[in-house]
Structure formats: structure tokens, C-alpha cells
Design a protein around this nucleic acid. Structure first.
Lengths: 120, 120
DNA sequence: TTTAATACTAACTAAACAGTAAGCCATGGC
DNA sequence: GCCATGGCTTACTGTTTAGTTAGTATTAAA
């Protein structure tokens, strides 16, 4: 019973730090979520509208993971109807530069392969 | 028959360039492969030895994908036994900076969560 | 009274990804 | 003849990730 509470802090191991980063920002929707939260604080439903195609399940799942990783902050207002605001933590904001490099390379790669932006 | 040869060049679309990058370098083993190829040219079996835990199937699959994305170059020597060398293309080398940012953030994140490097 | 909005949760299915094990081809050494 | 090496390929299995649908609580507006 005691060790049900004791949240086991298993030490993760990586071969290279890039893996650790990919684990946090990789995935189908996470870059986009980070992208928008980097602009401003969003409420759940507004973020959902901002990212067409994502299901509520995926959005909440990714938000929870990002929260667990200390990247996003979740602020709940106990009102009716409920209101929940998501924003980047300081640790989340520190991703800015990395996201920027990824974005730059992504643009170059998109040019190269003739990819386009999704019109929504 | 004619359009069996005509490799369909479907235009990819992304919501944000970061997605394009993640698609190329994301995945369980790709950062590591890139990491090593960034140091020097490797033969298949040497690369496999460098990355303990990866199966031949996964290694070849990822190498082929990276090759298709124009990131790695595959040079075959028709000798017996066969010899195949993998290296980064110029486009692959242009990832260097992005990988570096990811690596830096990854290190900071690893410190934060108390993760470690895998001893092999 | 029915509907709509908010922020979810749960159950189930489908698709993508990863791992295991075996086999192939050529040749040189034992 | 048989095994080893190098660089794979194929078939099968298992795990992880993603998507779909339905449902919950509360209140106010139509």
C-alpha cells in the first residue's frame, strides 16, 4: 500500500540527448500544440479549433503528457461552464530555440520535397 | 502499366514545418543513426554494433527511409563479401545545427528529470 | 423541455511501428 | 562439404499509437 503512493521514479536512460527531446516534442500533434501555445495561452476548445483534425482524446492526451513533462501549465477555473487554460511553462519556453531550428530546417526540407502548408 | 513506373509524387502538406522535420528525424532509432553518421561514414555491420539493441530490420528500414529523404548516402562496393558504406549527404549535414539544438535541450531536460546515458 | 457549451473520460477498433527468427547469396578458409 | 562473413529480405507476432463513438456534470439560453 505504501509503495502504491510512492510514485516510482524510474531513471530513464538515453543513448543520446536528442532522444530525450524527441520523446517530449515528437509525435503527430505535439509540435503543433507547442507551436500554438508558444504564441499565447489557449483554452482547451480554442486550441482544438486551432488544430483541425485532432480529436479531443489526442489533444487531451498530448496536453497531459506535456504537462507531466513540465512543458505546459494547466490552470483550472472552477466556474460553470468550466474553463481551463493551457500555457507554456518556463521549461516549455526554453524549447523555443530548438523549435526554431527544427522549423528552419523543416522549411528547407519542405522546399526540397515540394511540400505545402495545409490550408484549413 | 505506364503509371506503375510513374512514381506518384504526392504533395505532402504540413501544418507547421516542425512536423516535416520530426517526420524525418523522429522515431526510435533515427536520432542515434544520425548521431553516428554525423561523426563518420559507417558500414552496415559497424553501425549495427555502434547501436546496441537495434535489429537489422529496423536499422535497414531507417537507413532506407533516410536515404529516400535524401539524408544519407548509400555506397555499395560489389565485392565478396559485400561492403556498403553509409554517410550523410549535404542535406543530411545541414541537420547538424538542428540536431545540436535538440541535443542541448535534451541535455537540460535530462538533468531536470534525472535521466542518464545508457552504458553499453 | 430540449439544446448547447465546456472539458473531459471510457470503451472499443484500426493502423502504424517494432521485434524475432529464419533464410539467401557468394566466396574463401578449414 | 561445411561453416563463417556481410548485407540484407521475408514472414510472423506483439506493442504502441491513433481514431471513433458515446457518455458525464452543470447551467443558461431558446
Amino acid at each position: 500500500m505504501a509503495n502504491q503512493n510512492a510514485k516510482i521514479m524510474e531513471t530513464k536512460t538515453y543513448n543520446c540527448p536528442v532522444e530525450a527531446t524527441i520523446e517530449v516534442i515528437g509525435g503527430k500533434w505535439k509540435p503543433l500544440i507547442l507551436w500554438w501555445l508558444n504564441q499565447k495561452t489557449y483554452r482547451f476548445a480554442d486550441l482544438r479549433r486551432q488544430i483541425p483534425g485532432i480529436s479531443e482524446k489526442m489533444l487531451i492526451q498530448h496536453l497531459r503528457e506535456l504537462e507531466a513533462d513540465g512543458i505546459v501549465d494547466r490552470k483550472v477555473y472552477s466556474t460553470v461552464p468550466p474553463k481551463v487554460e493551457y500555457s507554456l511553462t518556463d521549461h516549455g519556453k526554453s524549447l523555443k530555440q530548438a523549435l526554431h531550428s527544427l522549423c528552419d530546417w523543416g522549411k528547407a526540407h519542405m522546399d526540397r520535397i515540394g511540400a505545402e502548408y495545409k490550408e484549413t
